[in-house]
Computed example of a mutant assay.
Amino acid sequence: MGAEKYFSSERIVYDYGKNSDTTSALVKAYLYGDAPDSWQFRQALLAEKADMIGGHVRIGRFVSLLGVGSTITFLREPLQRVASEYAHFVRHNGYKGSFKEFYSDPKMHNRQLKALQGVNTEAIGLIGLTERYPESLEMLNKHFGINIPRREDNQGKPKLNAQHQLDKEDVAALKRLNKRDIALYQHATALFESRYAMFKSDQPWAHARLVEASTKRVSGWAWWAGENNSDEPLDIEVWVNDELAGSVRAVELRPELCRLLPPRGGHVGFHLPVKLSAGDRVQCRVTSTGQRFPPTPRRVVEPAKS
């Protein structure tokens, strides 16, 4: 893969599971041994001066050791991803079942969402899209100050953008079984388009999330992406129905984020007391760049009655 060409395979640590021949000896020794020790693994990783950890693991496995800002993932259109994984299981794992049997297994539902469970997409250092691989690689290289070349080695189709052909019955079933993955992908795509537009205009990107838009307050968190001055707090504008409702600085502690090792020790939160009504449209903006989050305004809903 391109990363191996850039870093060399000796500088990449792999985790593809305990029984995989691809999994690095360092991972097997510290994470799959008789007494797994993640912190000692981190120390060994630093001692080895590894440049990258790669593999098919859930995001929570390493995020608290190395930080969410150093984490990248690629998402894929969910239906095509299931079809691709089925082809992989048939080709490499000797799977004998039908496609329908494969995708009907609950373990195969919403796999991308499960892999990212516990971490908001807005916080992840970089989310690339398989369908937008060249643009994803552009941003990845800029984000980390590296120059990984474009390659398309690990694929089961002649071209990366080729589509698996699915019949209508399978499409309907896959959409029903993977609703949460589809919603995740749509949200990630909106974030990607926003970030890429900022990237092309040479504007810094902020990891930012609107957490709450209630009838009494607006709150969230925001920090600069890794290639920028990450300790500089962000000034945030709160817009309601396309009118500026107020401004606030993102300097409050968000304890739930601390395990992700965000900048400023987790002091990246903000809140603005404001009286809103059900149906109001709320969106925030980074004052210095105009970056909007979420990508489309959120509607205020009626508070639940006790």
Rank of each mutant, 00 (worst) to 15 (best):
L26D: 06
L113Y: 00
G156H: 06
A87S: 09
L75I: 02
S9N: 05
A172E: 14
L174Q: 02
R195Y: 09
V301A: 13
D202Y: 05
V251I: 15
K49E: 14
A83G: 08
T73V: 12
C284H: 01
H88K: 03
N93Q: 15
P78T: 01
G60E: 14
T287V: 15
R81M: 14
L79N: 00
G69W: 02
H109E: 04
F62K: 01
L75R: 00
D280N: 15
S84G: 00
P255D: 11
K28W: 05
L65F: 07
T189R: 02
E152M: 09
E122I: 04
T215I: 13
S288N: 12
K96Y: 02
L126W: 15
T73P: 03
L31F: 08
G118I: 05
R259C: 05
E131S: 07
K96C: 09
P204D: 09
L174C: 05
K168P: 03
K18Y: 11
H271I: 04
S64Q: 13
N19C: 01
L244F: 10
V27P: 02
C284G: 10
L177M: 14
E193L: 04
S20H: 01
R298Q: 09
G265D: 12
A115S: 14
G290P: 07
H88N: 04
E135V: 03
G269L: 10
D181L: 05
L66V: 05
R91F: 04
R298D: 06
L129D: 04
Q186M: 12
V251P: 07
F102W: 08
I146T: 03
V119M: 10
F199H: 14
L166M: 10
F41N: 05
D170F: 06
Q112Y: 05
W221K: 03
S70F: 07
A44Q: 09
V274S: 11
V171M: 15
